[in-house]
Amino acid sequence: MDQVVRLVVNGDAVTARVESDWNLLRLLREGLGLQGTKEGCGAGECGACTVILDGAAVNSCIFPAVAAEGAEVVTVEGLAAPDGTLHPLQQQFIDKGAVQCGFCTPGMLLSAKALLDRIPDPTEHQIKSALAGNLCRCTGYNQIIEAVQAAAADLAATPAAGARASSETEEVPA
């Protein structure tokens, strides 16, 4: 059964034709060619497929594509500024060694971004809680937590640095 979905992805309005049994992950990767979002478990357990939908981190593997009608979605491709300047989270993940194989990284970045948009100055506990649904088999998590803390500090010092991506998430979900 194919259906049409209209949504905004990384600031661009898109219209896509999907099968009703497609998940949002497949719409992003196959429908729109945005392959930064990864599939790990496909069952909501690992967080590799995390994107931001209407301001909230969601697992795109268990989110029906059709249910994204009218939504604003941010993927890892939407984090850097148009001139290529990395988002503070991306830069700090590199600087702090929070990336090894990189498979979990897009999901980690988006869970972290959703957290910082909601709580700009999170405690370590709040960071762990927000990232508990993102598995990393490489880093041991410590570097990831440090990177999120450092990015929070960067964003507090230069709020404009994260402005582009956050302006895309101001819609309140229905």
Binding site: D54, G55, A56, A114, D117, R118, I119, P120, D121, P122, H125, Q126, K128, S129, A132, G133, S166, T169, E170, E171, V172, P173
Partner: peptide
């Protein structure tokens, strides 16, 4: 409870353990 993204609600919530 209507969540507004960006509103820093819950910053001192009890029960926010790691999952």
């Amino acid at each position: 409870g209507a969540r507004t993204p960006g509103a820093a609600t819950g910053t001192t919530l009890p029960g926010g353990a790691a999952g």
